[in-house]
Every structure is written in structure tokens, then in C-alpha cells.
Design a protein around this nucleic acid. Structure first.
Lengths: 202, 202
DNA sequence: CGTCCATGTTAACATTGCAAACATCCGCGA
DNA sequence: TCGCGGATGTTTGCAATGTTAACATGGACG
């Protein structure tokens, strides 16, 4: 007999997150079928409700981790590329993440599946991302413009990533050179946007 | 007797689009209940399937029109503000549209509900938007960089609009002054991004 | 005037999120 | 050691909703 089928699983929440994340990354929230998630672990469908209030809460928990992972990736991109231009490294890392996890990114940044106001932990995680960007922005603009600067830099890198994963730039797809060119232009764009912010009385 | 209840409606497709759009704008694709849409017009649920292959096709048709409307709005913003900075006008108009139709914008730009590759008309409409931006970009960079320039400018304005409608910038919300300041910074950002593109051998 | 087909209806099915009632078992105190 | 309580998991079933199949209607056109 392979594994002793304990009635009490012992690690269910974790495995639910793992299985759910797998499905989410394959096809978005619609593909996260609670019966599939549970079945894949060998547990009954409704066991999920002992660990998550509902499907939305499960998705939210998965997204929370995704935000943390992304934030970490960006942090590493910064520390591993001390010589490289910082925004260049940030944007490239962001795009890498998006291309590797398009469904994750799609789900993270639209209020469709998850009402963030109902999931404080998710808010904290997503704010962590913006705080990283704010901290970075203060290197190029004033403390007072940290939020605006973070918004601006996120806008640019997220917009670029979105266009790429949604295939909206036919000419760019699968051309690493063109992409890295776009990344450099975006980085320049970010920095001058920050400069513009700094030059305003604000 | 009010209206003669004709068996053949005569204008159903149009009214389905209208009713669907209303629901979509209220709460996104999940709120677009086919029974509601049909019921609101006084027609049976499955009548929809005589005009649209499935729900996704209905949504896609609604989004197609939304893309056209948005593109038109941007065009008008350009022509009505000849004196004003052009990217400033574009970005402001884009943000206005997004704030007025948050659910529309959310649904337009994520591949969650609609697989664009299955809806050529939608692709055409969305490409129209990027072409407008490309045409605008060529005023500041070379023809060769039109696509990249369009991508960059769209990234910036869409990112900004997204942050605003998703309430991700607490400090900015409901402060027209701060928003217009961000818009100006974004416009500056766009233009220097385009300049950066132009300065690359591309 | 009759036939065809686009358009609309009725009935029913499959999926899926979710809740209620029940089952099991681990931990803890007497 | 015994037993009990609560946390964890199961069974059953419902309600919402997208979709299909089979049928009905009536306008256009010969």
C-alpha cells in the first residue's frame, strides 16, 4: 500500500494552493475548478471550504503569493545587476515574469475575480510591489513624489508586459532584440517621467 | 396594446448588444447573464444563439464597439485640442474613458473572457487603437519605430488609467489636480521614451 | 399560394459554486 | 485510560447558468 490514506490530510491548505496555482497558471480563474483542485489531491470537493471561505478566497491566496514572488524577483533583479541600469533590470524582470506566468499576471491585475477590499492580505502583498517601486523612484525624484513615481514606473512596465503577453505587438513577439530595445526605451521613459515629476511643484 | 409582439423581432442583434453592454458596464462579463440579457428585451434566453455563437462572442462584439468608441474619443481629443499638448490630451481622454467605463476597460484589455484569436473583428478594432497611437508616435520618432512607439505610449496611458480605476493610488484618487499632474508627467514620459527609441539604431 | 430558411421558443442537460448535515479523528483534560 | 469537543473531511443535493436539440413561426420569394 502506497501512502497511508489518512482521513486528516495534514497539509491540505498548502496542497490546495499548489494545485490551484497550477490550474490558474494554465488558464486563469475559470479553469480553477474546485472539483478538479480537490480531486487532483485526492480529497473531496468541499474540503476546500474548511480552508478557504470560497473560490475567490482561494484565488486571492494564490495571487498573494504571486505578488510576493514577483516582488522578490524584482528585488533580485536589482541586487544581481548592480552594474546594469536599474530600471532596465526591473522592467526586464517584470516582463520575464509576465511571459512566464501570463495567466497569473492577467489575474493579479484585474479586479474581475477578486475584490481586493475583501482580502487584506492580498492588499498588503500588492502594496509591497508598489513600495519597492516607490523606494526605487525616490532615487530619482523627491520623497513626496514617491507614490506618483511608483505609479508611473509600474504603468510603463506593466503596460509593456501586458502588450507582450496579449500579443498586441506582432512585430515584437519572439524577437529578444526588439524586446530589449523596447525595455531600454521604457527605462529611459521612466526616468524622464520621474524627472518631470520632480520638476513640478508637488 | 403597447407594441405589437412580433415573433420576429427585427432588431434583436442590436438590442442584445445594447442590453449586454449595459450589464457589462455595470459589473463585467460575469454579470452578463444570458437569461437577463434576453429577458430584458423580452425574448427567450436561447434567442441569443441565433446571433452569437456563444457568450464569448457576444462579449467580443460589445468590446469591439468599445474599442471603436475609445479610438474615436482619442481622435476627437486630438482634433479638439490643437493648441494643447497632444499626448497630454490623449492621456487625459484615455483616463476619462476608463473612469467612465471601468468595467469596459477591464474587460477590453485582459484575455480572460475573450480569446482574441477567435474574434478577428475584435482584433481589427483593437489594432485600430494602436494604429492611432502609431500614427501619433511617428510625429516624434521614425516610421520604423512606429509600432514600438505606439506600444510605449499605450503602456503609459493604459497603466496610469488602470492604476486609477483599480484604486491602486490612494493618494491620487479624486484629486483632479494630482491626476492632471500625473498626466503631464506621463506625457513627458511618453515623449522622452519616443526620443529614446529614435536615438537607437532601430 | 406554397415552400424554405432565418429567427425565435421550449425543454432539458452539464457544469460548477456552494451549503447543510453527517463522519472521522486528533488532542486534551479528568 | 477514557471520552469528549472541535477541527477537518465527506455526502448529498440545490441553484445558477451556459449550451444544445427539437420544434414553431412567419416573412421572402418563386
Amino acid at each position: 500500500m502506497p501512502t497511508k490514506q489518512k482521513y486528516h490530510h495534514g497539509n491540505l491548505r498548502e496542497e490546495l494552493l499548489e494545485a490551484g496555482s497550477l490550474l490558474l497558471r494554465q488558464g486563469g480563474a475559470q479553469v480553477v475548478d474546485l472539483r478538479s483542485v480537490a480531486g487532483q489531491i485526492g480529497v473531496s470537493q468541499t474540503a476546500i471550504y474548511r480552508h478557504f471561505r470560497n473560490k475567490e478566497a482561494l484565488i486571492a491566496a494564490i495571487l498573494e503569493r504571486a505578488f510576493i514572488t514577483l516582488t522578490e524577483a524584482l528585488n533580485q533583479a536589482l541586487s544581481k545587476n548592480r552594474d546594469r541600469d536599474d530600471y532596465d533590470a526591473l522592467i526586464a524582470a517584470y516582463i520575464d515574469f509576465a511571459r512566464g506566468n501570463p495567466w497569473l499576471v492577467r489575474t493579479m491585475f484585474n479586479g474581475l475575480m477578486v475584490d481586493r477590499s475583501l482580502h487584506p492580505d492580498l492588499c498588503v502583498a500588492s502594496r509591497g510591489l508598489l513600495e519597492l517601486l516607490a523606494a526605487q523612484a525616490t532615487r530619482y525624484t523627491s520623497e513626496a513624489n514617491a507614490h506618483s513615481g511608483a505609479a508611473l514606473s509600474w504603468s510603463i512596465m506593466h503596460g509593456l508586459a501586458t502588450l507582450i503577453i496579449e500579443n498586441q505587438m506582432p512585430s515584437l513577439i519572439n524577437s529578444p532584440e526588439l524586446i530589449s530595445q523596447m525595455v531600454r526605451a521604457a527605462a529611459a521613459s521612466v526616468r524622464s517621467g520621474l524627472a518631470a515629476l520632480a520638476s513640478m511643484e508637488g
